[in-house]
Design a protein around this nucleic acid. Structure first.
Length: 262
DNA sequence: ATGCCTTCTAGCAGAAGA
């Protein structure tokens, strides 16, 4: 089974790219972030036309997450528990049942948190605490569990082409990295790091200053796997080529292959 | 030191992103 995550930076602007990606990589499940549209303005019929079931959690102009799946999604939850006052659409999860097993997948758009001197950074750290609490509860099911998406976390200096550029950024603060580490320490594997220790593996390049042409990238889109899912991990791939398409998202799709019959 | 670019909404500029 192939699972992908991709921050599309507006689903309406990226519909053609999504179609091309689905055709060329044939994922069974796709987690999307930054839809930038409401549930009722999501291009549902077009995406269903690509051969996928669709579950969305959108909002006007900002944020918005979705899960696409060739199989129907069950037990869908929208919104991260722990703060009824949080109206950002940043979390959706669902279960894909196959003939032999089941898999729970979450599509995550973790807050950016910049600038770090503002309440946005506190919101980011609080959101990460809530994610850890929810993830801890999910791990108790001891099932195939995949948390993926745009975490807005640079886990390690080798995950940035030029770490010095990020020292004052919310994505690379010690508190941010410690919170991400604590999340992993609940029992998750960072799928890419389970396969490679290499630096230079990026998933985001800024639109500005020719960042992609200079390969000035960062790795912030991640797959976190429960022990049951990690046992089935075959490979991880980053579709870096997609960043070179015309009018691209600033993020590229990342994919894992699990040893599960789709 | 700052903006660089792209998206959104609103309405011909500003916020947000990272």
């Amino acid at each position: 089974m192939r699972i992908a995550t991709w921050n599309v930076n507006s689903i309406k602007q990226r519909l053609e790219h999504l179609g091309e990606f689905l055709k060329t990589s044939e994922p069974d499940v796709v987690c999307l972030q930054e839809l930038k549209c409401t549930d009722d303005t999501f291009p549902r019929s077009e995406v269903e036309g690509f051969g996928y079931h669709v579950e969305t959690h959108g909002q006007k102009a900002y944020n918005g997450v979705a899960i696409l799946s060739k199989r129907k999604l069950e037990d869908v939850r929208v919104g991260l528990p722990g703060d009824d006052g949080d109206d950002h659409a940043r979390y959706i999860e669902g279960v894909i049942a196959t003939e032999k097993t089941a898999l729970r997948v979450a599509s995550i758009y973790l807050p950016n948190g910049n600038p770090i001197t503002t309440p946005k950074f506190a919101y980011k750290l609080a959101w990460m605490e809530r994610l850890s609490a929810h993830a801890r509860a999910l791990l108790k099911h001891e099932e195939n569990l995949v948390l993926c998406g745009d975490f807005n976390v640079i886990p390690d200096p080798k995950d940035a082409a030029d770490p010095a550029l990020w020292v004052n950024d919310a994505l690379f603060q010690p508190e941010t990295r410690a919170s991400f580490r604590a999340l992993l320490d609940l029992g998750f594997a960072d799928a890419l790091r389970a396969c490679s220790d290499e630096g230079g593996l990026y998933t985001f390049w800024d639109y500005q200053a020719g960042a992609y042409q200079r390969n000035n990238g960062i790795r912030i889109d991640h797959f976190l796997l429960s022990p049951q899912a990690q046992d089935k991990l075959r490979s991880v791939a980053i579709r870096k080529d997609v960043r070179g398409w015309e009018k691209p998202s600033d993020h590229v799709p990342v994919m894992i292959d699990l040893d599960i019959e789709p």
